[in-house]
Design a protein around this nucleic acid. Structure first.
Length: 234
DNA sequence: AACATGCTCAACCGCCACAAG
DNA sequence: GCTTGTGGCGGTTGAGCATGT
């Protein structure tokens, strides 16, 4: 029998749990994360909530005229929402989609805005210069760095083979280690299902509580600055 | 004031691509 | 090559709010 997940607006408490978990552990497996974070939500729901709302990188509202023009021009030639979002830092595909349906589509229908052919900037790898070109004929989307490159001097990629259910570890996923080393008290956390109660119940953690955030700061817990993937990638 | 209508946007759903076993 | 699990994408829905009548 499939697990019954909540299907309703997220509460501040749920947001807090998700943010706290991601802040401490990063993103390693969306489908497993809610279970470990103590959330009665599907992985998809958690992913969507983070990507579209909780991620500190997300900018909300206050669209500039330039952003609107980019959306209109790219949409005009059939570029997907996610591709448009990649062109607009801080904007999500969902938000752009909403922007389109609620504002821009009507403005175009009423001839309020003029649809222009998009100009795309890219680096010419042969000359290492910034070029402007037409979309989509000669546009090549820049590739994100691979996780192995980001964590070149970091042990995280070796965690990829684990036994806690993260069977699909792709480019942007970070898996926790399967083993627990007594020499490394930090990673013993991976073994336990995560919940706020568990965290508050740990005596040594009590001294680490961030008075502003209300939870232990990851850098305190790990003893060094903590950089979640989204701060490393972008 | 009460109701109808329109608008916004968070959230869900279904489908697809991809990787691993 | 098939199955399964996961993440991502685009379409759609519906609650809450704003505005109009």
């Amino acid at each position: 029998m499939a697990a019954a997940f909540k299907k309703c607006p997220w509460t501040p408490e749920e947001d807090m749990q998700l943010v706290t978990y991601i802040r401490r552990y990063g993103i390693w497996n969306w489908s497993q994360m809610p279970k470990h974070a103590g959330l009665s939500r599907s992985g998809k729901s958690c992913r969507l909530r983070w990507m579209n709302y909780l991620n500190p990188e997300v900018r909300r509202g206050n669209y500039t005229q330039e952003e609107d023009e980019i959306i209109i021009s790219l949409r005009h030639i059939g570029v997907g929402w996610s591709a448009i979002a990649a062109r607009l830092p801080g904007r999500t595909d969902n938000e752009i989609k909403n922007r389109w349906h609620s504002h821009l589509k009507k403005r175009i229908a009423n001839n309020v805005v003029e649809v222009t052919e998009p100009k795309i900037e890219q680096i010419d790898s042969t000359t290492d210069t910034l070029m402007t070109c037409e979309y989509p004929n000669d546009f090549v989307a820049p590739e994100l760095p691979k996780l192995e490159e980001i964590y070149e001097d970091d042990p995280i990629p070796s965690y990829a083979s684990n036994n806690i259910g993260a069977s699909s570890i792709s480019n942007n996923n970070i898996a926790p280690p399967a083993y627990v080393s007594s020499a490394d008290p930090h990673i013993s956390f991976w073994r336990e299902p995560y919940s706020l109660e568990d965290v508050y119940g740990i005596d040594q953690c009590a001294t680490y509580v961030d008075p502003e955030f209300g939870m232990p700061r990851a850098e305190d817990w790990f003893g060094e600055p903590f950089y979640p993937y989204y701060e490393v990638l972008y």
